[in-house]
C-alpha cells in the first residue's frame, strides 16, 4: 500500500502532521520519500525507510518526533511535479490520490541554467522551419485563384432569333476554357438579348454611351446608346443563379430568378426581390449580316457596384 496524501503521520511517541506530498523514484517507480507537513512547523522529508506501517489514513513512523523535527527542511526546488516531466510508465505505479506527486529534479537538467532560453530557442527554430514553408504553401494553393480577364469576342448566334421588342431571348453559346492541366473543354453559357425600344434604351443608358475597360483601365469597347440590342450576363447579380424571361401574374413579362425570386424588367432594372443591382450589361456588337458577338464578362454577385471576375 502506498501512503496517501493527507494521511496523518504518527511518530513513535505522537502525531506530528500529515502527508503533504509524495516523492517517487523515477527508476524504481516506487515511493521513495514522504513530505510531512509538521502542523505548521514547516515541512520535513522522510525516507520510506523510516516508515513502519501504512494504512488507509495513517502512516506510522519508527523514529521519534524529535528525530523527525531535527531533519533538514524540505527543499521544494530540488523536485519537479509529474506535470513538468513525463516518465513513461510511472503513472501506472501511482496509487496515491491525485495531488502533488514529485520526482527529483534530474541533476543534468538542473544544471541547465537557461531553461527559458532553450525553450524560446525551440520556438524560434520551429518558426525557422515553419515560416519559410508557409509562404510557398500559400502560393502553391493560390496558383489558379487569380486568372487574367479574357476580353475575346465570342460569336453567339444570329440576331434573327430575336422576334419581339423589349422581351428577353436566350442565346446559348459555348466557351472554350483551359483549366490548368485539363484538356481544353467547352462549357455552356448563356446571355439574354433584348431588342430595346427607345424608352427602354433611355432607361438603360440614360443618354450616355457605356464604356468598358480592362483591368488596367484601357477602354476596350463602347456600347453606343442608340444601338438597340442589349446583352445581359446570364448570371443573376443577387447570388449568381441563372434567371429566365417569363410571365409574372402581376408584373407581366419579366426576368425572374428562381433562386431568391429577384425580378427585373426588360431594361435589367430590379422590380422586386433581394438583388442589389440591375442585370449586368455586356459589350455587344451586331454585324450587318446579323452575327452577334459579345465579350463574356462575369461580375461578382451580391454587391451594389460591379466587380469583374471573368
Amino acid at each position: 500500500m502506498q501512503p496517501q496524501l493527507k494521511s496523518k503521520v504518527r511518530c513513535a511517541d505522537r502525531e506530528v502532521g500529515e502527508v503533504a506530498k509524495v516523492i517517487m523514484d523515477p527508476l524504481s517507480h516506487e515511493v521513495s520519500h514522504l513530505v510531512v507537513s509538521m502542523n505548521g512547523a514547516g515541512e520535513r522529508q522522510v525516507s520510506m525507510g523510516a516508515v513502519q506501517t501504512v494504512t488507509d489514513d495513517l502512516v506510522q513512523l519508527r523514529s521519534s518526533s524529535s528525530e523527525v523535527m531535527a531533519l533538514p527542511p524540505f527543499k521544494r526546488e530540488d523536485y519537479v511535479t509529474l506535470h513538468e516531466v513525463e516518465i513513461p510508465g510511472l503513472e501506472r505505479h501511482i496509487h496515491v490520490t491525485p495531488g502533488e506527486v514529485l520526482v527529483p529534479f534530474p541533476d543534468l537538467e538542473r544544471n541547465v541554467k537557461r531553461r527559458k532560453f532553450f525553450a524560446n530557442l525551440t520556438y524560434v527554430t520551429g518558426l525557422f522551419i515553419g515560416l519559410p514553408l508557409a509562404f510557398p504553401v500559400l502560393k502553391y494553393l493560390m496558383k489558379p485563384m487569380y486568372a487574367p480577364l479574357d476580353n475575346r469576342w465570342l460569336k453567339i448566334g444570329n440576331i434573327g432569333k430575336v422576334k419581339v421588342d423589349d422581351a428577353g431571348t436566350q442565346f446559348k453559346y459555348k466557351r472554350n476554357v483551359k483549366e490548368a492541366y485539363m484538356p481544353e473543354a467547352e462549357i455552356e453559357k448563356n446571355v439574354w438579348l433584348v431588342k430595346a425600344t427607345p424608352p427602354v434604351l433611355e432607361k438603360v443608358y440614360q443618354g450616355k454611351d457605356m464604356e468598358f475597360r480592362d483591368a488596367t483601365g484601357k477602354a476596350i469597347w463602347t456600347n453606343k446608346k442608340d444601338m438597340p440590342y442589349l446583352a445581359f450576363s446570364g448570371k443573376c447579380p443577387h447570388l449568381g443563379c441563372g434567371y429566365k424571361w417569363r410571365k409574372h401574374k402581376i408584373l407581366g413579362q419579366v426576368f425572374l430568378c428562381p433562386c431568391h425570386l429577384s425580378i427585373y424588367d426588360a431594361s435589367g432594372k430590379v422590380l422586386e426581390g433581394p438583388a442589389p443591382r440591375p442585370l449586368d450589361l455586356l459589350p455587344i456588337q451586331v454585324s450587318p449580316s446579323g452575327e452577334v458577338q459579345i465579350i463574356d464578362m462575369e461580375f461578382k454577385a451580391g454587391t451594389k457596384s460591379q466587380t469583374r471576375i471573368v
Binding site: 494553393l141 493560390m142 489558379p144 485563384m145 487569380y146 486568372a147 476554357v177 483549366e179 490548368a180 485539363m182 462549357i187 462575369e298 461578382k300 471576375i309 471573368v310
Partner: peptide, 16 residues
Amino acid sequence: DFMSRFLKGGPTPGQM
C-alpha cells in the same frame, strides 16, 4: 474574396 477564390480555385467554379 480570398476565401471564395480559394475554395473555387479561380474566379468561377470548375475543375479546381
